[in-house]
C-alpha cells in the first residue's frame, strides 16, 4: 500500500510533476520526456553519479546535484537546462573525448554509441582541450567478445551489471585517477577468466564500442538493454 505521504510533488523546468518518494529526479524526467544527458546511469543498475553530465540546479541548494542519484523531495524546484549547465556538460564530454582514442568512423559502435549521440545532441564539433592519445591495449582473448580500452569511458556499467545482475563480479577497476582501467578478474586476459559466465550483459550495457561482440558488423552491433529493468523487477517479485 502506498501512503499519500510517499507521493511528492515537484517542479521540473517550471512544470509540475508528482513522483514516488523513492524516485530520482532523472526517473521523473525520463517518464515525462524531459531530456537530461547522462552516460554512467542505466535503468536497472544502481546509480553511481560518476559522469556528472546529469547535474541539475535545485533551488535552495548551492551545489549542483546529480539527477541520477538525487531523490525527489516535496516542493523541489529543478532546472535541467541553463547556459551554465550546458557549458559544463559540453566540457565534460570534451574531457571524455580527450581521455582516450575515440574515432567514430572506424568504430564498431558508429551510429549506436551513446557518447557519439550526446556529442551530437550537445552540438560538439571541436574539442579545445589537448588530446592525450594514450597507448592502450585491446583484449581479444575471449571467444565471443573483445574489450578495446581505447574506447572505454570508465562509466562502470559493465562492472555493475556483472556484479549486481549476473552476480559474477568478473569486471572491476585497476589503478586510480587517469590511470584507471577496467579489468577482468585480477587483470588477467578475459578469455582465461574462470568467473566470466559469457553472458554478454557487459557488452550490451557498454555505452560505447569498448565492449563488443566479435564478428559483428557495425550495422549488426546493436546493443540491447531493455532486459535490465525487467530482470530486476522480476527478481524482486519472485524473492
Amino acid at each position: 500500500m502506498i501512503r499519500a505521504s510517499t507521493i511528492k510533488t515537484l517542479k521540473i523546468d517550471d512544470r509540475d510533476f508528482s513522483a514516488r518518494h523513492d524516485e530520482t529526479i532523472l526517473d521523473v524526467a525520463r517518464q515525462n520526456g524531459i531530456f537530461i544527458p547522462k552516460i554512467c546511469d542505466l535503468k536497472g543498475l544502481s546509480p553511481v553519479g560518476a559522469c556528472r553530465l546529469c547535474l541539475v540546479e535545485v533551488k535552495g541548494s548551492n551545489r549542483l546535484l546529480p539527477a541520477c542519484s538525487t531523490l525527489v523531495e516535496e516542493g523541489m524546484e529543478v532546472t535541467t537546462t541553463t547556459e551554465r549547465l550546458q557549458r559544463y556538460r559540453r566540457n565534460i564530454l570534451e574531457l571524455l573525448f580527450t581521455e582516450r582514442n575515440h574515432v567514430c568512423s572506424v568504430c564498431v559502435s558508429n551510429g549506436h554509441c551513446e557518447l557519439q549521440t550526446l556529442a551530437q545532441k550537445l552540438d560538439i564539433t571541436h574539442v579545445h582541450f589537448r588530446y592525450r592519445y594514450p597507448n592502450l591495449d585491446v583484449d581479444a582473448s575471449h571467444d565471443r567478445f573483445s574489450v578495446d580500452h581505447n574506447r572505454c569511458i570508465l562509466c562502470s556499467r559493465c562492472v555493475r551489471v556483472c556484479d549486481e545482475i549476473e552476480g559474477a563480479h568478473t569486471w572491476d577497476f585497476m589503478g586510480r585517477g587517469i590511470e584507471s582501467l577496467v579489468i577482468t578478474d585480477l587483470a588477467e586476459p578475459w578469455g582465461t577468466s574462470e568467473t566470466c559466465t559469457g553472458c554478454g550483459k557487459c557488452v550490451h550495457v557498454c555505452p560505447t564500442g569498448a565492449l563488443f561482440e566479435k564478428g559483428k558488423s557495425v550495422a549488426e552491433m546493436l546493443k540491447r538493454r531493455e532486459f535490465l529493468p525487467y530482470l530486476t523487477q522480476m527478481r524482486e517479485e519472485h524473492s
Binding site: H102, S105, H112, H126, V127, H128, Y131, Y133
Partner: peptide, 22 residues
Amino acid sequence: NEPPNPDAPVAIDLGSGKGGDQ
C-alpha cells in the same frame, strides 16, 4: 612529445552515424 600546434581546437570525428539510444 606533443602534437603540432596543440592550442588549436581539434575537430572530432563523429562519423556519419545517426547515434544510438539515450
